[in-house]
Every structure is written in structure tokens, then in C-alpha cells.
């Protein structure tokens, strides 16, 4: 039996990362960790592309999947920046509710409905 090549080893490692990331992204309850899980899931998927592009000879390595993964990395950082901005915003709204004495309602605060009547009162 021949020794396993890097394609098999890293293919399975990437698959493991994909599975862990997918599971935590779908079952996690903390926003930051779910975002991290999505990124790990994306890394795992990138591993499969890079492994598919790998050949034992340097000339045979396919550049097209590499370009796709670079595109994916840039799109992922954009998505993470938006997700993190949303996390900051949600936290700010929860803090504002806590300061105002209204229950923060951790799972899903509904700021819009609560703020409207109070906004109207000073008029």
C-alpha cells in the first residue's frame, strides 16, 4: 500500500472542518461563534477546491480553482464585516434597552415596536 498523498490527507481535514463549521453554524446560539463557524465551514469548502486542483507535478496544478478560492476569501471577509457590524448593532440596542429599564429579551429584542410609542409621547 502506498502512503496517502497530501490530497487525501488535506481533503479529509478540510471535510472535518467543513462538518464542524456547518454543525456549529446551525446549532450555535452565540452570534460571534456562529460567524466563526461559517468562516471555518468556508475554509473547509476551499480545501476541497484546492485539493481538486492539486497534481503531483507542479505544471499540472490548475489555477482556476485557486482564483475561485481567492474570490471566495474576499467575499467572505465582506460578509463577515457586515455580520460583525450587525452583531455590534444588536448589542447596542440590547444595552439601550437595559439602560432604559425595559427587559432586553435576549433571544429577539423587537426595538422598533417598543420605540415608536415612546418616540411619539414628547410631541
Amino acid at each position: 500500500m502506498t502512503a496517502p498523498g497530501p490530497d487525501l490527507i488535506y481533503g479529509l481535514a478540510g471535510l472535518g472542518m467543513f462538518a464542524m463549521g456547518l454543525y456549529v453554524a446551525m446549532t450555535g446560539t452565540e452570534a460571534l461563534r456562529r460567524v466563526l463557524a461559517l468562516k471555518i465551514c468556508a475554509i473547509g469548502a476551499s480545501f476541497l477546491l484546492i485539493v481538486a486542483a492539486w497534481r503531483a507535478t507542479p505544471d499540472g496544478i490548475d489555477a482556476v480553482p485557486h482564483a475561485l478560492v481567492i474570490t471566495g476569501i474576499v467575499v467572505m471577509v465582506s460578509a463577515m464585516a457586515v455580520a460583525l457590524a450587525l452583531i455590534r448593532r444588536i448589542r447596542a440596542l440590547e444595552d439601550a434597552h437595559a439602560a432604559a429599564g425595559t427587559p432586553a429579551a435576549p433571544p429577539r429584542p423587537a426595538p422598533r415596536r417598543r420605540t415608536r410609542p415612546q418616540q411619539g409621547t414628547p410631541r
Binding site: L32, I70, M80, L84
Partner: peptide, 30 residues
């Protein structure tokens, strides 16, 4: 190791570096 130095550079600079900075900046709020 898998012959993808361009992707490795992008991942180190953007995936680890810039994303890490973004995460640390958000951590302060949490």
C-alpha cells in the same frame, strides 16, 4: 504545501489578518 501560494497569501493577509482585526474590534463591544 498544496501548491497554492497565491491563495495562501490571500488567506494569511485577509482571512487571518484583516478578519482577525475585525473580530478583535468587535470583541470589545461584546
Amino acid at each position: 504545501r498544496l501548491g497554492a501560494p497565491d491563495v495562501a497569501l490571500a488567506e494569511a493577509a485577509i482571512g487571518a489578518g484583516v478578519t482577525g482585526a475585525l473580530l478583535l474590534a468587535t470583541l470589545r463591544h461584546l
